[in-house]
Design a protein around this nucleic acid. Structure first.
Lengths: 218, 218
DNA sequence: GCGCTTATTACTGTATACAATATTCAGTAG
DNA sequence: CTACTGAATATTGTATACAGTAATAAGCGC
């Protein structure tokens, strides 16, 4: 069941289903070599977690994100990450902070030959490691939920912006090392807001970039 | 379906099911005059939203909250409510703030003859109205989810503490009126942390208070 | 050809059946 | 009486069937 959940979640977050178009349970079940019942169970879970919408008589469909919704999710993400790094400045051990520094160095300043998907993954690892230092499991789960829901949009310009992203990550870790909570939080918020601006800009610019990314995901 | 969801959610948050004891789907379906399938669909949703745990072969059960988990949820709640009132200081109209003041006055400083359940409901309305002023739907949904999950514990000493709660609510609204974000946030955090301390204390004191509340809910 | 109505087909939401697994009960030995 | 084993029963997870509804196709009139 959890494998089925992971499979369908992956399809949802990579927008294999067109927004607002009904997910055909019969077809999906056949495609996944199972019956409708476990498929519906998974779809119900994803609906409850904010990934899908459900309309009586029309079944489940992928949600279409308005710029407003994206902005709200990013704002929420900024709030919890900002709080998390403040907690991390209090709670993290020196060893943990050094480990994060090593991770940054190992993942380099340049994208190298990594795909956008890999860069998104590395970016996520960095932010989740920060969140782990806050020692609040609920906050970590929340960040993971948000990141999954906005995953499609987090691809925007990822490879072109990797150097700047890593510079900003580095500054955040340095503030964390200095246990300067205010500076760390401000840097993190700026970092997230910059990304949000880029994404909103891309979404408003139309669907061309979005279609390219969908193809890249295939 | 949404009525079924509401019914089962109510049973879950009032701990009609004992923690860690399997929820019997057949019995529950019979009790609710439906078949197992929609019951399972609801249970899957509640599981996905953090209300229930699921073990293969053993089905769904109510989670048992450790003091750690309660503390984490309250910490998260404090973070988002604190951020929300900062946003409210920027975004709320004078009319909206006045409406909140009127709500406080209409719901009085004293519990009156209200039940604990009604007091919990009024407390929740106050906090949700604050959250609405932040103009972030995701944050409101998150607060509602957290409040539902900790609902059982929010009953602790509710009637005995109503006067103090309302005084604190009033101070928060006054800071909001003054558009003093720092003061409002500090007051709100203190308010939430005081409640958390009371609840953790009660939970650690044993199960007597908890059993009384379960009986009161029946 | 277009628009409307009706018939047909497909799909959703739920009920029921089935297979696998977990739990409970009964019998036996020490 | 206690502990262990095997059988019987109950429950879960999934497959399939059914009824109601939504979507599509076909036919007819203008």
């Amino acid at each position: 069941m959890s494998r089925l959940y992971d499979t369908v979640l992956e399809m949802v977050v990579t927008y294999r289903f067109l927004p607002n178009q009904r997910i055909n349970e019969v077809h999906l079940a056949r495609k996944l070599n199972t019956s409708r019942t476990p498929v519906r169970e998974v779809l119900n879970r994803l609906h409850a977690q904010g990934f899908l919408q459900l309309k009586k008589g029309s079944g489940f469909s992928c949600r279409e994100f308005s710029p407003r919704e994206i902005q709200e999710l990013y704002q929420l993400r900024s709030i919890i990450e900002s709080a998390a790094i403040r907690l991390a400045c209090e709670n993290a051990t020196d060893a943990e902070v050094n480990q994060l520094q090593i991770f940054l160095q190992q993942t380099g300043p340049e994208p190298g030959d990594r795909s956008s998907q890999q860069l998104v993954e590395l970016d996520q690892q960095f932010h989740e490691q920060l969140m782990v230092l806050a020692r609040n499991e609920e906050m970590l789960k929340l960040l993971q939920n948000i990141n999954a829901r906005i995953r499609f949009f987090r691809w925007v310009d990822m490879d072109n912006k990797r150097s700047k992203t890593q510079v900003e990550h580095q500054q955040i870790v340095e503030a964390l090392m200095q246990r300067d909570a205010a500076a760390a939080a401000a840097l993190l918020e700026d970092h997230i807001h910059r990304r949000l601006d880029e994404i909103i800009h891309a979404v408003k610019a139309g669907n061309e970039i979005m279609n390219e990314q969908r193809e890249q995901a295939s």
